[in-house]
Design a protein around this nucleic acid. Sequence first.
DNA 1: AGTTGGATGGTCT
DNA 2: GACCATCCAACTG
Length: 224
Amino acid sequence: MRGGLDAAESLLGAFLVRRMPGVIDRVGRIVEVEAYGGPEDRASHARAGNTVRTAPMFGPPGHAYVYLVYGMHDCLNVVTGPDGAASAVLIRAVEPVAGLDVMRAGAARWVARRAARQPEGAAGSAATGDTLSARHHQPGHRIGTGPGRLCAAFDIDRSFTGMDLFDADGPLVLVAGMRPDPASIRRTPRIGVGHAAPPWDAVAWRLLIAGNPSVSGPRAPITD
DNA sequence: AGTTGGATGGTCT
DNA sequence: GACCATCCAACTG
């Protein structure tokens, strides 16, 4: 699926803009992505075909597909393929460009929401305070590192599924940015898909900007 | 610095 | 009832 990789590469360096009433716009530069294909791709959510959950992946390109993973983290995808053929690019990490304080507030809200679900009492609340404090003092460049963390920082959840990300007036907008030097782009296997049948567990469809401090996970480049 | 296990809920078999 | 496109804290060395 060469087309999916091209689409993924074209998203590197693009800006993700989150507009919310009453607060400064949040802007992140996309520095890490993964390409996912259709039913043939055994690591893709589309492997089970066109279901209620995955229907957006089979829809028109440029729209959002947001899913919940491990019961807690929302993850943002950009649908890339032609209408009718499932494909999507998972946005795995952004480098904060503007609105860092609002991103931190978004991450803190996520933690608070989670804590509010827990039963009353116990040592949980003290631990939550420590977590909030630790998160607040984290270096800013890691606030959007990882698909779950970037969604928390940008207040993105499943309700964003189906949104047109190229609608300039929408709450979440993709804006073209300076493309990274092709020599700085590295490819590795996708993260967390070890369960998939070969070769889908190993295809190097994760793209990242080498050396960028906001990139997640293993930095070891695949030379190919 | 690297590894391990728990949290947690929707989706699919 | 099993399986996750994750994250963090608490371990080991």
